[in-house]
Design a protein around this nucleic acid. Structure first.
Lengths: 119, 119
DNA sequence: ATACTAGGTATCTTAGAAGATACTTATAAT
DNA sequence: ATTATAAGTATCTTCTAAGATACCTAGTAT
């Protein structure tokens, strides 16, 4: 599909980055791309996230239909988060992001470190 | 290239999203993908950005070698920002982001709006 | 009875990103 | 002389995402 309206294209970039951006969403999605995960499983893999933040991010991604909250059992209380059919499409995007990152990490991330030190 | 280490892959996702994320960087890059632009040209196309924010974001992208500041003339004072040879590789990433956005905008952005209203 | 696990919620605080506003230097135009 | 344009810089303020901390409900294990 061609992009006719450039301003439109730029708006789309901003919208998508809003979905996948922030401190945690990309990581959460990257984890869920692999396989469905439970709340505390995600929490421990993300290591530094707090419950409240994780809940908030998961609710957001649920709201926009990227992922689904599935109650596996009520006793014991087991909940599983997995990508919706629709949300699975994000895998390719994540893959592209990783590929770009691998190709460019030397040049970019080296200077990024230096740049952060200055600040 | 295969990703062997999954934690590594997730780190890369976070790093790349850090570069391209935030409120303005994606937009700035999308504009510069098209053609080099001058400071005030960018400023007016981004409409709501302030000088200080634009300067800061441009310096960051310059630091990590994604773009280059080129003094076109000193009198009058004309400066042009353009992607480095290296930075041009970001075009494909932006293109992929736009494509994903176009495919999924109905389902995602509709619910995003709704989700934002709730907040 | 007590404590532990799973999956959270409810407040409050904090740090950092972004915005508002004013100013600057150098040249050109009227 | 004055005003305008280009490309910023310097402070200060505000806003908001994320963190800290404490607590909750329901079942399970000891």
């Amino acid at each position: 599909m061609e992009i006719k309206d450039k301003q439109q294209g730029i708006k789309i970039v901003a919208d998508v980055l809003d979905i996948v951006g922030g401190k945690w969403r990309g990581k959460i999605l990257a984890h869920l791309c692999d396989s469905p995960k439970r709340f505390n499983e995600l929490k421990s893999k993300l290591s530094k996230i707090t419950s409240s933040t994780l809940t908030k991010e998961l609710r957001y991604l649920e709201d926009i239909k990227i992922l689904e909250r599935k109650i596996v059992s009520q006793s014991p209380n087991i909940v599983e988060y997995h990508l919706t059919t629709h949300g699975k499409s994000i895998k390719e995007l994540i893959q592209t992001i990783i590929e770009w990152g691998i190709k460019h990490r030397e040049i970019v991330f080296e200077n990024k470190l230096r740049s952060n030190q200055k600040e």
